[in-house]
C-alpha cells in the first residue's frame, strides 16, 4: 500500500516511492494513468451488463437466462429464418413453376442451380461425388447414361422416390427387377463366359452375329436390355453399347461377375426428407451437370 506519510522521493527519477524496500531496492509509486483506470472501471460496468442482459451464471438445473432472452440456438434459428425470408421470392417461384418453366427462365434457373448445388453437396455428393462424377456403383450424373431416364421430370422422379427402396412410386420398389444372378438362373460358367465376351464386344463396338454369346444374350438378356442392347430406362437396364465408362466397370472380369452374381443398386427416396422446391432445384442442378438426356 502507498505510504502517504513518508513521501520518500527517489533521487534519480523524482518519483515518490511506495515505501517498500528490499536490499536497498525501492519500489517507485507510479500509479496507472487516470484515463486507463477509468477505462478499466468502464469495462467492468460494461461486463456487468452481460450478466444482466445475456445468459450468464450456471445454476443447478439451468442458468440465468438474461433479460434479453438471447440464446445461441435462437440466434441460429433467427439467421436461418432470415435466409429463408431472403430466398422466399425465388423459392416461391420455384415451388409454383414446372421444371420446364424454371429451366426456360435464365435467372430462375441460375438460382435453382445454386440452390440445388448446396443441397447436392449436403445430400448427394457422398455417393455421386462433389461434381456428380460418380464412382464405381454410383452413377456419373455428368454423363449421358441414365439408368432411370435423364429428362428433368425423370430425374426429379428418381430423386423423390428413389430406386429399389420400397417406395411404391419408385423404380423397381421391391428390387425384383434388378440384374439377376444368372449363375442361379440356369446359365453355366461357359455360357456366362460367352455372353460376357459378347457384352465386351458390344461395349467396344465389335459385336458380330458369329459370337456364341449373341444367342444367349437374345434369349436371356434382351428382355430387359433390348434386342439392340441399348437398354431400357423403364427397367433401369443400362445401354450395353455405350463406349463410356460403366457403372461397375466394363472390363471382362467385372462383366462376368455382374452376369454371374447380379446387381441391384439402390437410390434412396428423398421425397420425405427434402421439400419440393429443393428437389426441383436438385433436378435442375443435376440436369445442368451434363445436360441430361
Amino acid at each position: 500500500m502507498v505510504d502517504h506519510t513518508h513521501q520518500d522521493i527517489d533521487a534519480a527519477t523524482g518519483t515518490p516511492t511506495t515505501g517498500h524496500e528490499w536490499d536497498g531496492i525501492k519500489e517507485l509509486n507510479t500509479p496507472l494513468p487516470r484515463w486507463w483506470l477509468w477505462l478499466f472501471y468502464a469495462c467492468i460496468v460494461w461486463a456487468v451488463g452481460y450478466w444482466v442482459f445475456y445468459p450468464a451464471i450456471p445454476l443447478p438445473g439451468g442458468h440465468t437466462p438474461g433479460i434479453l432472452g438471447w440464446t445461441s440456438r435462437g440466434a441460429v434459428n433467427g439467421d436461418v429464418q432470415e435466409l429463408v425470408r431472403q430466398r422466399a421470392e425465388f423459392v416461391g417461384k420455384i415451388e409454383k413453376a414446372s421444371l420446364q418453366e424454371i429451366s426456360a427462365d435464365p435467372k430462375l434457373a441460375e438460382f435453382a442451380r445454386a440452390y440445388g448445388r448446396s443441397a447436392f453437396g449436403n445430400n448427394c455428393a457422398p455417393c455421386h461425388g462433389s461434381g456428380g462424377q460418380g464412382a464405381v456403383g454410383y452413377p456419373n450424373l455428368a454423363g449421358d447414361r441414365w439408368l432411370w431416364g435423364g429428362s428433368l421430370d425423370q430425374i426429379a422422379a428418381t430423386i423423390t422416390h428413389g430406386a429399389r427402396t420400397g417406395d411404391p412410386e419408385g423404380h423397381d420398389p421391391a428390387g425384383a427387377a434388378g440384374m439377376p444372378a444368372w449363375s442361379k438362373m440356369g446359365l453355366d460358367a461357359t455360357q456366362i463366359e460367352q455372353v460376357s465376351d459378347y457384352v465386351v464386344a458390344l461395349h467396344n463396338g465389335a459385336a458380330t452375329d458369329a459370337l456364341p454369346g449373341k444367342k444367349i444374350f437374345a434369349e436371356n438378356c434382351a428382355a430387359c436390355h433390348g434386342e439392340d442392347a441399348k437398354g431400357n430406362p423403364e427397367m433401369g437396364a443400362p445401354n450395353l453399347t455405350s463406349k463410356s465408362k460403366w457403372l461397375y466397370g466394363s472390363d471382362k472380369a467385372t462383366i462376368v461377375q455382374t452376369v454371374a452374381n447380379g446387381r441391384a443398386g439402390q437410390m434412396p427416396a428423398w421425397g420425405a426428407k427434402l421439400d419440393p422446391a429443393t428437389i426441383k432445384s436438385l433436378a435442375i442442378f443435376v440436369h445442368s451437370l451434363g445436360g441430361g438426356k
Partner: peptide, 13 residues
C-alpha cells in the same frame, strides 16, 4: 471449367 469431372466420355465415344 468443371473441376469434377474434368471431362466426360459419352456413350458414342
Amino acid at each position: 471449367h468443371d473441376r469434377n469431372p474434368i471431362f466426360v466420355a459419352l456413350s458414342d465415344g
